[in-house]
Design a protein around this nucleic acid. Structure first.
Lengths: 143, 143
DNA sequence: CCACTTTTCCCCACTTTTCCCCACCTGCCG
DNA sequence: CGGCAGGTGGGGAAAAGTGGGGAAAAGTGG
């Protein structure tokens, strides 16, 4: 269960520290790839396998499905932590996420999002202002 | 079953004592997150898991679902009590709840609300003065 | 095919923060 | 008045985060 936001630095070698609370769940390996809102996604390997199975089952002829495949797989990178609990973010991914020397890791229960700090603050503001919009959604889910 | 209001201090390290009456039910762990009226919520872990299962099952590609996920999980924090029955409130949550050095814990049967004392007094006043307004709502609920 | 250069990446060490535990204080109950 | 339980504060040990050095591997040119 990944929870909370954690701001960490990315050092000159492109390494990003994983918050200690998240490490146990990623010990079995992870995949880093590009997300949907110019952020990066970190999936534990089991979650990733499940995701890829469903995406690979999609039609080859559907344009949206092809684009989804490219987004997910073309920039994906399997990573393991070094003994200090860090991973190396390949340059292509850092560019894709607009990341420089700081990153915000956001735990979303089953996976993690990685944001450039200023971009994440924008998302937070949108969340604060759009709060009421979610009431209905949550009611639908019975929450 | 959480009942009653309890005012406790938050010390310089951001620690909040859980009322002794509440501890047994939170021994298995808890999740602290932001509520809806600038208060914090404390859920026992089983209650939380039940709450989040449906959200985590939502689609990754749906924008509204992604925002809902962020709203719910980004400011949440899993906590356990120390031997003195206290939990640590991360700074982001203290800010989110407008909390300084005092907090009011309000037991609401299945979960707990945490309020800044002055804000809680406002709520109490509204309860006292607006009591009659709830008649119709309660009739709807069949109470 | 060999040697040199460059990059990758692993590990060590320092600094800061976290958090755990001990001890004290206060108020309630017997 | 003494004992106990709940609440509060502070000190110390352990862990987390960060930066840097060195060895191995990969890439490049002679």
């Amino acid at each position: 269960m990944f929870l909370g936001t954690h701001e960490h630095s990315i050092d000159e070698k492109g390494r990003l520290a994983i918050p200690a609370r998240f490490r146990a769940e990623l010990a079995g390996g992870m995949v880093v790839t590009r997300g949907f809102d110019r952020c990066l996604l970190i999936f534990p390997l089991p979650f990733w396998s499940d995701l890829t199975r469903r995406v690979s089952a999609l039609s080859l002829t559907d344009e949206d499905a092809r684009m989804l495949r490219r987004l997910l797989f073309a920039n994906a990178s399997e990573q393991e932590m070094d003994r200090q609990g860090r991973i190396l973010l390949p340059q292509s991914l850092r560019e894709g996420g607009g990341l420089a020397d700081q990153a915000v890791l956001v735990g979303l229960d089953t996976f993690i999002e990685v944001w450039a700090p200023d971009r994440w603050r924008e998302v937070e503001e949108r969340l604060a202002s759009q709060g009421p919009r979610f009431d209905e959604q949550m009611r639908k889910l019975g929450i």
